[in-house]
Design a protein around this nucleic acid. Structure first.
Lengths: 154, 154
DNA sequence: ATTATGTCTACAAACATGATAGAGTATGCC
DNA sequence: GGCATACTCTATCATGTTTGTAGACATAAT
């Protein structure tokens, strides 16, 4: 898995929206300005995130973007998969499994790739925007934060 | 981290050389034929692996390539770093650490990236060619293989 | 209506990827 | 020595991806 510049922009924008959660729609221009991102490029990214149901938009004057779910229910894995594709270092989870099953002479190699994918997935599927957004007023305050990582009860 | 087609070719070639360890130099053509890799492209890859001291070459007639160290002392992390760059999903380990130290408002995000990098590194730095080469006659036979992964005593 | 703002399509420069071609160099062997 | 064999090195190239920019269009508030 590789996080591109675009992926980083997406995460930065979402962190900003997480900090502003429940403050209504934020204009693209404001996100771009505050996070110092190229505005027109950010437009495309937000559109992609909207199609992936991570954010929602309000059109017209007074419009903008906001998170579609609370920050502690949006996971980094979703964001990265949306903008940068599968978490696996080669192919994707299903593709790797197929290779493991079908390519006898390299299955051990692909199994290692699968291990790497699973390790990355374990981290990214258990880290939410709330965990990394920083100085946000969380919807329900006062939950013990085991060293700053991990979130979303369960 | 992303493993490219080229990276996969490199690993396949090295697995083949691991299986033939101590059988002398193997011709590029034979590696390409047996692993079904594009010959001229493989040339460039092997040159890169040679510069990284993972293999050594014998020039002239009867020449070819062989591993520079025993299969259980060549780790997947070295191969991937050589042909596909850093294991981190963004930038590299040092770059991430610098960002964590300097970019206050995003340090938690970069810390997650660092966690992902560390998880990948832990796997790939502890898996050797001997672990994945398969039906090879290992230099010293009969060592318990904990589920087929992990190697190199320590 | 006018203004503000998201939506959508097209375009493009720069770079990365996955190769191929061919001249050059070293070695084994007769 | 001279030929055949193989690695070495540089150049080239087609294609795709990345990182944007531009501009026309649609929608909503006032």
């Amino acid at each position: 898995m590789k996080v591109s510049q675009k992926g980083l922009y997406a995460l930065q924008a979402l962190m900003m929206l997480a900090r502003r959660y429940r403050q209504g729609a934020i204009r693209i221009r404001d996100i771009a300005y505050e996070e110092n991102l190229p505005e027109k490029f950010l437009e495309l990214i937000l559109l992609e995130l909207k199609n992936a149901r991570l954010v929602e938009s309000v059109r017209g004057a007074k419009g903008g973007y906001q998170l579609k779910r609370p920050p502690n229910q949006i996971f980094l894995s979703e964001v990265i998969r949306t903008v940068d594709g599968p978490l696996a270092p080669f192919a994707d989870g299903a593709g790797l499994q197929h290779l493991i099953d079908s390519d006898k002479s390299h299955r051990q190699l692909y199994s290692v790739f699968m291990d790497v994918r699973n390790a990355a997935a374990h981290i990214l599927e258990n880290t939410s925007l709330a965990d990394i957004a920083g100085d946000a007023p969380p919807p329900d305050a006062g939950k013990k934060k085991h060293r700053g990582r991990q979130s979303a009860e369960h």
